[in-house]
Simulated assay, not measured.
Amino acid sequence: MFGPILSDVESFTAVPDEILSLDENRVLALGRHGGQGAHGPVRARFVHIWTVTDGLVSRYQQLADTHSFRVAIGK
């Protein structure tokens, strides 16, 4: 899922500031993306919602500041 980001952003990171349990199968992570794009640093907030079924991630949703990514990578 991070393939395209890894090709556009050097030293990409996704660091959670807070992780919360939503229910028995879902986890919410609030944090920041970082790294270096061709046109500047990436500094973008994110919200990740992970659904786990039988010990495996069955669904992943992301809300992120895509404008910051586009500026940093020049697109």
Rank of each mutant, 00 (worst) to 15 (best):
S7H: 14
Q61C: 12
G35E: 01
V57W: 13
V15P: 02
L56D: 13
N25H: 08
L63A: 13
M1E: 13
E18H: 14
R43I: 12
L20T: 08
N25K: 07
G31T: 07
A38D: 13
A38R: 12
R45E: 14
D54N: 09
G3T: 15
W50D: 02
S11M: 05
R59Y: 03
S21H: 06
W50S: 00
T53W: 07
S58T: 13
F2D: 12
W50Y: 09
L22Q: 02
V57G: 03
L30R: 10
E24P: 01
V47W: 12
W50C: 04
E24Q: 06
A72P: 03
P16Y: 06
F2I: 13
G34I: 03
I5S: 06
S11L: 01
V71I: 13
A64H: 11
Q61E: 15
L28A: 04
A38G: 03
G35C: 03
G55Y: 14
V52C: 11
T13P: 02
R43A: 06
I73P: 05
G35R: 06
V15K: 11
R26F: 00
G34C: 03
A14E: 09
H39Y: 00
L28W: 07
F69N: 02
G31M: 08
R32T: 05
V27M: 03
R26D: 06
P41A: 06
V52D: 01
S58C: 09
D54C: 00
R43C: 07
H33C: 08
D54I: 01
G31D: 12
A29P: 05
H48C: 05
S58A: 05
V27P: 00
A29S: 14
R59F: 11
S21E: 10
L22D: 04
S7K: 15
P4V: 11
G37L: 01
F12A: 10
D8R: 14
G34F: 01
W50Q: 04
L6H: 14
K75I: 06
Y60P: 01
F46Q: 09
P4R: 15
R70H: 13
A64P: 11
A38F: 01
E18W: 11
A72M: 02
R70N: 10
Y60S: 09
R26T: 11
S68V: 07
G35D: 04
G74P: 00
T51W: 04
D65W: 10
